[in-house]
Design a protein around this nucleic acid. Structure first.
Lengths: 340, 340
DNA sequence: AAGAAAAACCAAAGCGCTTTGAAGAATGCC
DNA sequence: GGCATTCTTCAAAGCGCTTTGGTTTTTCTT
């Protein structure tokens, strides 16, 4: 059943039926009523491909999904995606994923854009001076960035959290507790968020006249294994740190394991502050010693981005171009005064 | 730049250019060469919407993504998705996600199907007598099921693991080690896999003349919290179990936490076998006491399903309609002889 | 009741591609 | 050389929708 048949059935023109369906004003109320009833009865559904061809609109938002052989499926990404999905659903939009080799995200992005399958894009996992920004700017598709890109002209729309401030606050808390040797277990160094978090740590240390010892900074994918490895490395040092900052509660999982292995008590022998993305499977209050965290929901960020993308040309929607969310510092039991 | 312009530029008809591009035999080798060169130079890309309208093919596979307010983003799902994505990428296909309220997956599935945005579908998280199967059968789209549906006519294509056998094997191992009170920490009772796993446990127990005490069976979403709660409940029992089976390494996380809390030693005071989906963030060998597991990669299943969907009408591709994978039992340190 | 304005409807032209049915050019055969 | 084949190429007809530019009715003025 297509438009032609339906309109023939109703004794109307395709034009009128189409307009009735799309809520145009120049159609009689009773006629519209009649059309709508016929649609119900016949089960007519407009062909999306045709609609798309005629309008140029796709009714979906796109995103490059980082994935490749050997690349772990990232729980953080899942949570973010979930927020996007939830919002897309509420607005009857699709989510088109372009799975991409992390080595070729620019290419994947372009392919997704030119594929004509989406009418808005988002990118995440930003790096300093991210090449995808130029790609995005050169495209004529609306887009939003999750995160930011250091050293890049900051003229693009983004939703980000204030990573620098979060880790500044966390470090400051540790300093106030008397800690002087503080280690950082960060995400991979090529990510923008990791750079900013490190900067936050350094700024706080600087205010106390200290610097971040390179031996006390670790960069790695945020898995519990890596948290374990980094912690063990720190513990083997002649001058052990008395406190750790870590970029994810997933990393913290490994940290806790390492401390247990070394017979150390969290919050007493070692303090720990982790960044909490509010992953439902890994709640900081459920750790054997509840974790002090800087908190900002990744899911909420996903929801926000999807919402902005979908409402992008609704007249009522007037979003700020750029949003910088503040992470909340929540003190629990994993932080205590520096030992000795 | 579209086909019309391109063909004008080349002094050829749209037909010939189109055929040259799509690899039809009836076009002169030099002509094809010339067309291909022009495509490179002009950067011409065929419009997907038009292609879709003309051919009816979408070049993408679809899946309903379970998500809703309050529903946790599931790490198992992320891993599965990642496998699909990787394969889709390799075959230059899109992945269209229809985010869906878990309460209305049938509706979401239908909407996705009729949207015309996909030319094949997959479903997962099966339940006994799953209503989505009827929907899928009534649609004219190719599809594959991840998992199976008990009590439903088994005429559909699926890729599943032999959950019953896996848990039968695991239970048998525990029985051989002398355990007689064995508890099961399962996934939610409405999932097919949970039903089958429980059945496997019951069959093994039955062979030893035992039954599964209802007080020793727990059903819940597979989060570490729930693993903790279930374990604590079991430990509070007058007649404690001496061994636990659990449906995911995520649950096992909570189990370990509970045992630590109770001062019990894993593998000595309590044995544990978990099902391992090969989640990269949660490797059984990295638990403080390495976990005995039944192993089957969720990512591999995703890859396989995507592959079958994409190759569905390639002549060379001749897949069995139904695939039942065997999970591997891997003994590590979390299982030991029954105490006492 | 006549003319103007507003309301309701329509025919037909795209959107950019694939594919059908035919025609023109090149080759083979006797 | 003449006819049948085989290669190449083409014009035009869709695919199913939206939208432009009218035309026909109906309603409102005076």
């Amino acid at each position: 059943m297509n438009l032609k048949e339906l309109s023939k059935l109703l004794g109307l023109s395709q034009t009128t039926v189409s307009r009735a369906l799309n809520g145009y004003p120049e159609v009689n109320a009773q006629t519209r009523e009649r059309v709508l009833r016929a649609v119900k009865e016949t089960g007519y559904r407009p062909n999306k491909a045709a609609q798309r061809l005629a309008t140029g609109k796709a009714g979906s938002i796109g995103m490059v999904m980082p994935t490749a052989p050997g690349h772990e499926s990232d729980i953080h990404f899942g949570e973010f995606l979930s927020g996007i999905g939830e919002t897309a659903l509420r607005h009857d939009h699709h989510l088109v994923m372009m799975p991409a080799d992390p080595e070729d995200e620019v290419g994947a992005l372009r392919r997704l854009a030119v594929s004509g399958n989406v009418d808005a894009l988002m990118i995440a996992y930003m790096r300093p001076n991210d090449a995808r920004l130029d790609m995005l700017r050169s495209l004529s598709l609306p887009y939003i960035v999750h995160g930011r890109s250091l050293h890049a002209l900051e003229d693009y729309p983004y939703v980000d959290i204030d990573n620098e401030a979060a880790f500044y606050d966390a470090t400051k808390l540790l300093l106030q507790l008397g800690h002087r040797r503080i280690a950082l277990i960060n995400g991979q160094a090529h990510y923008d968020f990791a750079v900013r978090r490190k900067a936050g740590v350094e700024r706080a240390l600087g205010e106390w006249g200290l610097t971040l010892d390179p031996a006390l900074a670790s960069h790695s994918p945020m898995t519990d294994d890596n948290g374990l490895i980094a912690t063990e490395r720190f513990l083997a040092l002649a001058a052990r740190p008395t406190a750790l900052l870590c970029a994810s509660t997933v990393l913290a999982l490994g940290v806790v394991r390492a401390l247990n292995g070394a017979g150390m008590k969290l919050g007493e022998d070692m303090s720990l502050i982790a960044h909490d993305d509010v992953l439902p499977v890994l709640r900081p209050e459920n750790f054997s010693v509840p974790l002090t965290t800087t908190r900002s929901s990744l899911r909420a960020a996903g929801m926000r981005i999807a919402e902005r993308l979908i409402n992008r040309d609704r007249p009522f929607a007037d979003y700020p171009l750029q949003e910088l969310w503040k992470a909340e510092l929540i003190v629990r039991a994993s932080t205590g005064p520096a030992p000795g």
